[in-house]
Every structure is written in structure tokens, then in C-alpha cells.
């Protein structure tokens, strides 16, 4: 009986008897159907549950630790409970992520333009598409090891080893495939007629791409860029061997703070979260709060941008 329930052909063997065409709630196939409905609902609940639990827990634990001093003070020395702040990590995250965006956006958008507008086919474009897919799959800690070997260990950046700039490069490697992909896909959505029209009235390829095609695709590209930046801001693994950490304010004397080890919120969560001191653990929660709120806001912004483009 139960095996028949999975086979639509077999059900024809059963005469409907007196019940005629009415729904029989006790037919095995219907019982099984309802059980599976419940199971799917259960799975969906389990899938959403972690988000709700983690978000609420972080908002509860971290929200309680947020004070004005968080933004203006430095973290306490291990064992002390004063001052309770992490202004350096907030500035550091902005510096490292901003630097990564400045490197990755031009390269990524340029690469995306090449793939979508200049060479859609051909072995070179195919090999670059392949490269984008491979790069997207490289574990983030390996981006950190790569930049460590390339930049930190060789002291190639003006003789400095660990620096905010090295951290930016590692995050840029991480953001690059996302930005190339979204640019490529965003540009492909632009109707061919726009390009034909622009070229038809005598615009050059440069003008067509920069003045007609790019503006038409700006909102999907912006969505991808915002999501890429938000993801990079929360990344820790690429930073622990590149930007390292620092309990002090950025050293403005060394390359406007870019060439010295720099604290970031994500590394601070890792470093302080595994410490046995209560004030440090509290700061880790506060940093989680700021990161989660920032990333949720960026996702809402990206959604709004996508909605904006659809209407």
C-alpha cells in the first residue's frame, strides 16, 4: 500500500468504491502527503531558527555592552576593566574594508566589463570566467596565507610587515570574484538595443559603455558591491596574518595608519572571545553587535537597491 503511494500509475488500480470522487483523508497516499507537509514545515522552521536565535542572542548580549565609550576608548589591558572601548577596531575595520573596496571595485568592474562587453566568447574570456569561479572557491584563510607570503613576509610594502594595507589586499582578493560576477551578469541584462542605439548615433565604444550601458546596469552592480563589502567586513581568517591586531590607535605617522598592524572588529571578536577575561568577552559581544547590525543594514540596503532597479 505505502509503495503504491509513491507511484501515480498504481493508484488507478483502486476502484473509488462508494466514496466516488470525494477526498479520502485515510488513503495512505493522503496520510503520507500530510506527513511530508509537516516534515517540510519542520525543516523550514529548523532552518530559520538559528538566524533568529543567533541574532537575538547577539543583540541581547552585545546591545547591553554598547556604551558611548565603546566608540571613543581603547580596549582594557588583560585583567583590567577600564577603559571599555574599541574605537581603534571600528576605525580599523573601516580602513581595511575601505582599502579593499578601493582596490577590488575598479579591478572587478573593469574585469566584468571586459567579460560582458568586450569578449563574451573566446578562450581568453573563458579562461578568465574559469579563474573567477576558482577564485570564488578559494578558502578565505588561503587568501590570507597568499598575501602573507607575498606582502608581509617579503616586506615589499616600504619595508613594513603586518599592515592594514596587507589586510586590505587580502580582503580585495576575496571580494574580487563577487564583483566581477555581478558586473558581468548585470551588464548582460542591459538590452542589446541600448548598445545598438548608442553605436548607431555615432558614439564610440568607450562612450557607449561608460555613458549608456554602465548607468543602465548600475543598480545590480551596486547591489553586488554592497553585499561584497558587507561580507568582507565580517571576514576574520584573511586578516589574522595580514592586518594582525593592535591594542592601540592607528599609528598615523606610518603611512596614515595604513602601514602598521591594525585592529579590526572581526579579529577582535576572535582574540577577545577566546580570552578568559570577562571585560574582553563583553567587548567581543559588543563588536559582534556592531558587525551584525552593520551587515543586516547592508543587506537591507542591497535589497532596496535591487527593488529600486526592478521598479
Amino acid at each position: 500500500m505505502t509503495s503504491n503511494a509513491t507511484n501515480p500509475m498504481a493508484t488507478t488500480c483502486y476502484p473509488p468504491a462508494a466514496s466516488g470522487l470525494t477526498y479520502n483523508p485515510y488513503a495512505p497516499r493522503n496520510v503520507w502527503n500530510r506527513a511530508m507537509n509537516l516534515l517540510a514545515a519542520l525543516f523550514a522552521t529548523i532552518a530559520v531558527l538559528p538566524l533568529v536565535v543567533v541574532t537575538l542572542y547577539v543583540l541581547y548580549k552585545g546591545g547591553g555592552a554598547i556604551t558611548p565609550a565603546i566608540f571613543t576608548e581603547l580596549p582594557p589591558a588583560p585583567g583590567l576593566s577600564e577603559p571599555m572601548g574599541m574605537g581603534n577596531a571600528i576605525i580599523g575595520t573601516a580602513m581595511v574594508t575601505g582599502g579593499a573596496a578601493l582596490v577590488a571595485i575598479p579591478v572587478g568592474v573593469g574585469g566584468g566589463i571586459y567579460l560582458a562587453e568586450v569578449a563574451r566568447k573566446g578562450w581568453f574570456a573563458q579562461s578568465i570566467r574559469f579563474g573567477v569561479n576558482v577564485l570564488a572557491g578559494v578558502p578565505s584563510i588561503i587568501c590570507g596565507l597568499f598575501i602573507y607570503a607575498l606582502v608581509v613576509n617579503t616586506r615589499i610594502l616600504w619595508g613594513e610587515s603586518f599592515s592594514a594595507l596587507a589586510g586590505s589586499l587580502a580582503l580585495a582578493v576575496l571580494m574580487l570574484p563577487t564583483i566581477v560576477k555581478t558586473t558581468d551578469e548585470g551588464l548582460k541584462l542591459v538590452p542589446q538595443e541600448l548598445r545598438m542605439g548608442a553605436l548607431g548615433i555615432g558614439a564610440s565604444r568607450f562612450v557607449t559603455i561608460t555613458r549608456v550601458v554602465l548607468p543602465a546596469a548600475v543598480s545590480p552592480i551596486a547591489t553586488g558591491v554592497v553585499l561584497g563589502i558587507a561580507r568582507a567586513a565580517g571576514e576574520t581568517a584573511p586578516l589574522i596574518f595580514t592586518a594582525l591586531f593592535s591594542p592601540f590607535w592607528p599609528d598615523w605617522a606610518s603611512g596614515w595608519g595604513l602601514l602598521a598592524p591594525t585592529a579590526t572588529l572581526s579579529v577582535q571578536i576572535y582574540n577577545f572571545g577566546i580570552m578568559p577575561f570577562e571585560p574582553q568577552v563583553q567587548l567581543a559581544w559588543a563588536a559582534s553587535f556592531i558587525l551584525v547590525v552593520m551587515i543586516l543594514a547592508a543587506n537591507l540596503l542591497a535589497r532596496w537597491l535591487a527593488h529600486f532597479s526592478a521598479s
Binding site: Y114, A125, I128, V134, V138, F146, L150, V173, L176
Partner: peptide
């Protein structure tokens, strides 16, 4: 120049992948 530049930027991706494998 613009077309060449986009080609160069695109090849940065492949160079990075190659660089990661080579370095490691």
C-alpha cells in the same frame, strides 16, 4: 586604451589564481 585596460584588469583575476597556487 579603454579596451586594453579592461583586458588587463580581467587578467588580474587569472593572475591572482595563478599567484595563489604558485605561492602556496
Amino acid at each position: 586604451t579603454f579596451i586594453r585596460m579592461t583586458a588587463v584588469l580581467a587578467s588580474v583575476v587569472s593572475l591572482t589564481v595563478f599567484g595563489i597556487f604558485f605561492t602556496v
